[in-house]
Amino acid sequence: MIEAKGLTKHYGAKHAVEQLSFTVRPGAVTGFLGPNGSGKSTTMRMIMGLDTPTAGDATIHGQHFHDLRWPLREVGALLEAKAIHPGRSARAHLTMLAQTNHIPGSRVETLIDMVGLTDVASKRAGKFSLGMGQRLGIAAALLGDPETLLFDEPVNGLDPDGIRWVRNLLKGLAKEGRTVFVSSHLMSEMALTADEVVIIGKGKLISQISIDELLAQSSESFVRVRSPQGPALKQALEQMGAVVVVEDDGSLSVRGANEVAIGELAASIPVVLHELAPQTASLEEAFMLLTEDSIEYHGSQAPDSKGVSS
């Protein structure tokens, strides 16, 4: 179990993480979601005792990371891909880590095989691809067979096969009763892996919610209507109390009235309808809606999120 209580990190005037509190429970994959620059990595570094919080506290099973008796056997972390000396082999990197916590060398070989680096284990890691670096980082995280695992963007740089492998790995670890905390900036990825998500924006907690609840919340539906007599229909719908938005392509997005009511209204005016289609927002859109106020770096043009779905 990981607990953050009022976790805060300021870098000078910049507030990277602000009063962040959440709990990551064992036996589930908990996603840590937020746009780039929202403070996910900083939070993970504070949990791992690498960065000192300005205020607040992060504990693992009620203990500070610094006080763990066998850190590598209790917590495993993949914090950044290729955090390894380019001149050192994968085997040497894992060996030097294993030695700190008195983990036998046989365990290193087991993990090299498990993550699929057997053929390159003796090669210098500087020649590794990003994907191979991720696999090595995952091996390092699993080295001590820890109860608690943290992964910062573990699928970055992996091919589709590798991504599927990581998903199954995370789910498998959670099924064994471990605490699994995974960060990502992609809702779609989390929808496939996580049971629960902690959503942050600009360093602040937006929501901690189960994926099922989030799906239910996000099914805020609307109806897409196309009509050659758009303005007339819009007026009638608004008189009925519906909220109507005219989209760029001239179609109407109607909220507050379902397709039955809209169809009947259109017939009574009468207005010709070319399209009458109920729409359901995707998880991705729900996530965008939740975080749109807290995106650190906006693109010059807001991308059209419609049609992006998991």
Binding site: R45, L50, I84, P86, L97, T100
Partner: peptide
């Protein structure tokens, strides 16, 4: 190289 973070995590 960033190895320090691996070292201090262990």
């Amino acid at each position: 190289t960033g190895t320090i973070r691996a070292t201090l995590s262990a």
